[in-house]
Design a protein around this nucleic acid. Structure first.
Lengths: 198, 198, 198, 198
DNA sequence: CCATAAACGAGACGGTACGTCTCGTCTTGTT
DNA sequence: AACAAGACGAGACGTACCGTCTCGTTTATGG
């Protein structure tokens, strides 16, 4: 589950320490912000030697990724709602997404993670594999169902479709260029469907 | 032109030092990368006292922003090509954009700037005002022309239109989720126009 | 006065910091012992950045040497008593020496210094030049006076004479092989004079 | 033979490990010097678990002492030469001593051992009992023979005599105050005999 | 045409954190 | 039960930068 790749011997690893580190990382991001997050601080808060962190994680970013992964663990078998109405379903999903992005509790750690991912390609790969990938697959599955139902063009590029939905939200959030509102979520869905209708 | 707001007396400022700092910042980002960029290093490379940097810039990010602004100075009166064919014009522009993002020389400093902007809202505001704003305005002007020509719906949300075009490119580039190709540029334009046709 | 040799610019040095470091070093040697003396600890106690210590001193030993040098500063124009009776004078001096070695307050820092000197030849050279040298010279001067008075052989090797007096005391103290008593001091003088009488 | 005192059950001890530790200690002192000698390093070099060292030795110093003891094992029944001429015999012995101290191969480990002994009284006691004691006894035996032969005063303090001979050599070596030459060895003997003649 | 006040280069300062190393203890199989 | 291996909490190491603070030294008017 951890992001490092230098595990000397995973079986010898102290689960107690691992949990303490991830919890401390989460707490500190929320309390002092990502800019002031330090490995030294995480170790102290977790009651753990610094070496224990360096032993199992490649970087501060790897710790942050694991800390967030640990939260969304149970969410494996995710599936998007499917009422048969692709427009209604997508709007519901996008409104939820927009709301999540607007949540201040969501802000700090996810912004931190995105900084790390933008800098460290290897970390980005792990992020995609562990978190983004499964979620994207679920979303594409819903779109595929809509294709089968004749609500979307059969030859639509679903990866691009996802980007048309999510990239604008992501950009607004990351760069704070404009507020994220439910109306905005609806507008994105409307435009997507207009572009992708058969 | 500089981003700080505490200029004790702009007239007394040494232009020679300012240029040396911006040049040093650009060189160091290219050479050692953003993560290892330090004010100490910039000052040393520029042959400038650290205080001179702290006097005129609020933060490392402000220096980076200025360093990049200084490059794109002449580009004030930017205007997009207007052949009358909105599809051809947009595809040309997007292909150029995609090519620019793929340029390795572009990478390091812009990525650095984006990190700072994502963290520092005040810097983001300056970035929008000085760089992104004028460029976006030029883009919207072209879209407005297309509206007047009846090639786009009269009630189209042009801000959203820009996001549908650029946010996917931005996301692919920042998170390295997928390659940026000319075909991708074309596809984005195609989808936009399908969604925005009258 | 300090032992390091990399003084970047002695005129810029903070005398307040220098004093605080030496005082902290002395206090900590007395309190926690030499084995547990750390540069980190000295810096913290002195309210000084670690870099300030590394900037001006080559090693922990150099700090300790300076700390002790600073104590015995005024003792420049040292001269041994000269009553005309070399035996009585030497016995007085050696009894004082023996008493000094037996003083627990003397123990910790001097033992620490001797460890460093035994390991670091460069430090040893500075120790000899700054501390041991002048003292030895004073002792030899007294012996020379005795030679002129016909109480010692004219061709006596005074360096060796000093060693015959002090090396046994030093060895007993350093290795704790036997107690240092006034009688022992007298015995050393008796033997020296028997060996060196004309 | 080992210096620790917590042997849980000496019979269960692995002789192979013990030898490996002592050999590794000797090699590392010679290779990296005493200052950089670590238990971690000894264990790694010896192919031994750290616990094995902690189980059988009280401290790093105890390992070093054992490592050196192991070398001078056979030298139990030592006796100094006795040609009947005390001056010649002592000069031969002292010249040999001086030569031994000047040997670079002798340097590192013995200096290391002396550091430990100067710091740790308990270790010093063991050193005296196991190494210095027997040797000193042999030296005193030779001096006693000289007393019986009327070459030394019958009431001479033989412990002090040994110190007059060896302490100056020890001091010169430890503090590197002056070179150790054969002439110096002779001079020490000459002075001793002048002081101790009947 | 100076004087004078600022900005300047240099870099020392008190600090924080880095990533590494070693300590001495503890845990997990192996022999 | 001792062993090799090595993870663990702890904490010092020496380095890199932070942002602030003197230091003289330009430099650029404005009296």
């Amino acid at each position: 589950m951890s992001s490092g790749t230098r595990h000397p011997d995973p079986t010898r690893r102290s689960e107690r320490s691992r949990q303490a580190v991830l919890r401390a990382a989460r707490e500190l991001i929320a309390e002092v912000g990502y800019a002031k997050l330090s490995i030294e601080g995480i170790a102290a808060r977790a009651g753990v030697g610094k070496q224990t962190i360096y032993r199992w994680w490649r970087s501060k970013g790897a710790v942050v990724l694991d800390a967030i992964l640990a939260l969304s663990q149970g969410a494996d078998g995710i599936a998007l709602p499917d009422t048969g109405d692709i427009e209604a379903d997508l709007k519901a999903v996008m409104r939820a997404t927009v709301a999540e992005f607007a949540d201040p509790a969501f802000e700090a750690p996810i912004r931190a993670l995105n900084m790390e991912i933008a800098i460290d390609p290897e970390l980005a790969a792990q992020y995609r594999e562990k978190l983004a990938g499964p979620v994207d697959e679920a979303k594409k599955e819903r779109l595929r169902a809509a294709q089968r139902a004749g609500q979307l063009a059969a030859d639509a590029d679903l990866d691009l479709a996802l980007e048309l939905l999510y990239a604008p939200v992501y950009q607004r959030w990351l760069l704070r260029t404009a507020p994220l509102t439910p109306e905005y979520a609806d507008a994105l869905v409307d435009h997507l469907l207009k572009a992708l209708r058969p």
